[in-house]
Computed example of a mutant assay.
Amino acid sequence: MRLYGLKTCDTCRKALKSLPDAEFVDVRAQGMPVDVLDRALAKFGDALVNTRSTTWRGLDMAERERPPRVLLTEHPALMKRPLIEADGALFLGWTERTRAALGVA
């Protein structure tokens, strides 16, 4: 299991605490593997971009209109977090639904 996020993200830290065996990948420091990014975009589409983030608010309108793949490649902090890869499945966010699917209380 891999958890993609930011080491400074409180939600990612909560998820990691509940998933101690997960491998953490800091997308700002290590980047997002292209194949995982493509699968996540295919599954979640525009929802993968966190439009409530500080990074998003710092972008001008022209940048905001760029394709999600380009935005996430250039600004990894724009990704909604965490993105969890478990047994080939992808989960976005640390929601009750995600926790239930992963068998975490």
Rank of each mutant, 00 (worst) to 15 (best):
P82D: 00
E65N: 14
T51D: 13
A77H: 09
L71Q: 11
L19Y: 07
L90Y: 01
M61H: 12
L72D: 05
P76N: 07
G93I: 00
M79I: 07
P68H: 09
A47H: 13
A86W: 02
G103F: 01
L83H: 00
D87I: 06
K14C: 07
G58C: 03
T95P: 00
D35W: 13
G58V: 04
E96K: 15
E63H: 11
P82V: 03
R64H: 13
R81E: 07
S18H: 15
M79F: 08
G103N: 13
T73A: 14
E65S: 15
L102F: 01
P76R: 04
W94A: 03
A86Y: 05
T95A: 07
K14P: 12
A77N: 14
Y4I: 04
T98Y: 00
A29N: 13
R69N: 11
G45L: 07
L59A: 12
M61F: 10
M79A: 07
G93S: 05
K17P: 10
L48G: 07
R28L: 15
R97F: 10
G45Y: 01
E65D: 14
K80H: 06
C9R: 08
L48A: 08
Q30M: 11
R66A: 13
N50H: 05
D38G: 12
A47W: 06
A62F: 10
M79N: 02
L102I: 02
E74W: 09
N50P: 00
R13S: 14
P68Y: 08
C12S: 12
G88H: 03
T51P: 01
A42V: 12
L92V: 02
S18W: 13
L71G: 10
V104F: 08
A47V: 14
E96Y: 10
A77I: 09
Y4C: 03
G93E: 01
D10P: 01
A29L: 15
Y4P: 02
G31F: 12
D35V: 13
G103Y: 06
M61L: 14
C12V: 15
T55M: 12
S18G: 15
M1A: 04
A47N: 14
